[in-house]
Design a protein around this nucleic acid. Sequence first.
DNA 1: CACTTGACCTGTCCGC
DNA 2: TGCGGACAGGTCAAGT
Length: 316
Amino acid sequence: MPELPEVETVKRGLDKLIVGKKIIAVSSDNAKSFPNSLIDVNSFAVNASFTNVRRRAKVLIIDLSSGYSFVIHLKMTGQLVFVNKNVEDRILNTEDGKSRVANSQIPIAKTSEARFAGGHPNDSLIGKLPDKSTRVEITFEDNSKLFFNDQRKFGWMRLIPTVEVKNIDFMKKVGPEPLEDSFRFSDFKIRFDRKKRSNIKATILDQSVIAGVGNIYADESLWYAKIHPERNVGSLQATELKKLYEGIRYTMKLSIEKGGSTDRNYVDAEGKKGSYLTFAKVFRREGQECERCGSEIIKLRVAGRGTHICSRCQEL
DNA sequence: CACTTGACCTGTCCGC
DNA sequence: TGCGGACAGGTCAAGT
């Protein structure tokens, strides 16, 4: 799922929705999704407040007043969804009728039939939370909740000291943020030139070269730059790399404006879908005509990923 | 080394 | 309708 624009959209939503909220309980049904112990949760999360939300590449960092942070990777199917109220109904539906205490061992009760009154933009989702994809449930003092849902269980969240966030393996190796003003074409060119033996699609997807680009925006930016995804990086002209640099930035900035891409699972922090795919040029458009030249858009497999190109604009 | 291929999971869709 | 296989937005570890 979530690539840079989607994670950025979630980050902006959480900024508005949860900063300042005090945690009273954290529960989880899956140690892979959330490996922290009950001791960690009680010591560093319960009674702490969310102070800040950050994004680095596709990783979200939510800082707490305790000096700890939740670090979250949504991988393919992860969601972070905030729900303001339905708590009282749900507690009545649990077996013992008691509100749960903080406990990363106690399974989340997935029996809610509570509905959102008044028609939320995506009440088909949030009215039903928690559901069977819910891995972690955070409850705030005002009884609002934050759900971490993840159908495929590839995603994870962890509670670690804020000062340690920069030291986790992923953070140490991840490349520069492509949308920062400080990220210039000269930096981009140097980093790509170092990878001249591999194909350009694999290189764009390599998080150590450049942060945050995934399969959708790799395909979209290669179309923008008229580059075939199997081209060897060493064969690319500087003018082609410049177009690619522009394409990556243009495509992902546009997607953030559109709230990201929803192919299947992705929703923002309010449970709403993104509309970028309406504007996509090639991704999931095999069989359609290229809007630039009218030729057919085809699908290939490159770097082990489904890959969409214009059969004329992007020659090998 | 640098680069490529499976594995991790669950769900859905497509062809027989 | 059922069943098997391919595939899905990401990243690692293990292979070549």
